[in-house]
């Protein structure tokens, strides 16, 4: 199959698949960040049960294989009378996994803040909430830019799980198997998808590096 044939027949689907992958990645990443922040606050707050819940959440979702989680959402939850459509299942899977890793990134961001700063904040009379808001979180966010950029790339790659459930229109990985089951597509459909992924990952990396250069804390 030549490239012109492929593009005339599946060009539209590639555009849709690329947009679908971008959209899923964007939504998942945004919600994962939010959830990661909440989980991180749980993990550093002085209330023991919340800490335990936060730690447990992170250990579960950073260690569970994505497919295993997706299968549970898609096939097991309906037995428990919880039904989500396929795309939502994929997005929720990515959010759960990514937020666990995101929380780990925030935790190591918090760990780079010196204990002296905390003591200084406290000696100025700041309470826990104020200290978190004015001292800890801004710095944790700034030093988490590079890890979060890598997480964004990981989110992009994790959306490939969408190929394991019937999505219409399919995302980039699902499209390759879709094309290959209908025609002998050869290496070309695969290469196009791969380049779209790698190109997106590259752009995310460039943006992340640029942001990091702006906000990095030079110590």
């Amino acid at each position: 199959m030549s490239i012109s044939e492929l593009l005339s027949e599946y060009g539209d689907m590639y555009v849709q698949a690329l947009l679908g992958t971008w959209w899923m990645s964007l939504v998942s990443f945004a919600f994962a960040m939010l959830l990661a922040l909440i989980i991180t606050v749980f993990r550093v707050c002085p209330i023991k049960p919340l800490r335990v819940v936060g730690d447990l959440y992170v250990q579960i979702f950073r260690n569970i294989p994505g497919v295993s989680l997706l299968i549970i959402l898609v096939y097991a939850l309906p037995y428990l009378k919880i039904v989500m459509d396929y795309r939502l299942c994929v997005i929720v899977t990515v959010i759960l996994v990514a937020s666990a890793f995101g929380s780990e990134n925030f935790m190591s961001g918090i760990n780079t803040i010196g204990v002296g700063q905390i003591e200084a904040a406290r000696s100025l009379g700041m309470g826990f909430g104020k200290m978190l808001r004015l001292v800890v979180i801004p710095q944790a966010l700034r030093s988490a830019v590079l890890p979060m950029t890598n997480l964004a790339v990981a989110v992009l790659l994790t959306t490939a799980l969408g190929s394991q459930v019937p999505l219409s229109p399919p995302e980039l990985t699902g499209l390759v198997s879709y094309i290959n089951t209908r025609t002998v597509g050869g290496i070309l459909p695969f290469v196009i998808s791969a380049l779209m992924y790698a190109g997106t990952a590259f752009v995310i990396g460039v943006i992340g590096n640029a942001i990091d250069k702006k906000v990095r804390i030079v110590r």
């Binding site: 790339v153 198997s177 695969f190």
Partner: peptide
């Protein structure tokens, strides 16, 4: 690093 492992699996499986 920029390509999902699932896509590579489909490459070896289908292509």
């Amino acid at each position: 690093r920029g390509v999902p492992s699932l896509l590579l699996i489909y490459f070896f499986f289908l292509v």
